[in-house]
Amino acid sequence: MSSNWKEAAHLIRPAVVFLIGLGLFAVARKAVIPPSFGQYGHYRAGALDDIRRKPVHFAGQETCVMCHTEQQTARNAGPHRSISCEACHGPAASHADEPGKLKPAKPEIAALCTRCHEASAAKPAWFKQVSSVTHNAGTSCEVCHQPHSPKL
């Protein structure tokens, strides 16, 4: 038995070096891989919270109508009732956070109305369309139609 050990003595030192290397690899691996990696799958689960922390720009319809009840009533009475405020007025989360400071810009009527309502054969037939050349010939839509409740 003792002669066997003597013959294997030259293997002990490389074995110790190998084990130390293995230990170093395990420690380095633990330090480099984030703890949440592999919680749900082959990815860092903490990324979900990172993505959730991104800022919201569109406040949402429910937030708008907390204050703007007058416009909501007008809108609900007309054909634009299902269009959210921010569809035309743009993102307003910063305005909802600080109503006094940041005012959303007034939409540019000429571009706003025609983007939806300019007549095109590509648009579905059920949708109300007019040709801005024959229908109003350069007159602003606002002269006749109130955007919140556009029915005449």
Binding site: H57, F58, G60, Q61, I83, S84, A87, P91
Partner: peptide, 10 residues
């Protein structure tokens, strides 16, 4: 909330 595209779709 809903997505921004759904919020803005008229």
């Amino acid at each position: 909330l809903t997505t921004a595209c759904c919020e803005a779709c008229p």
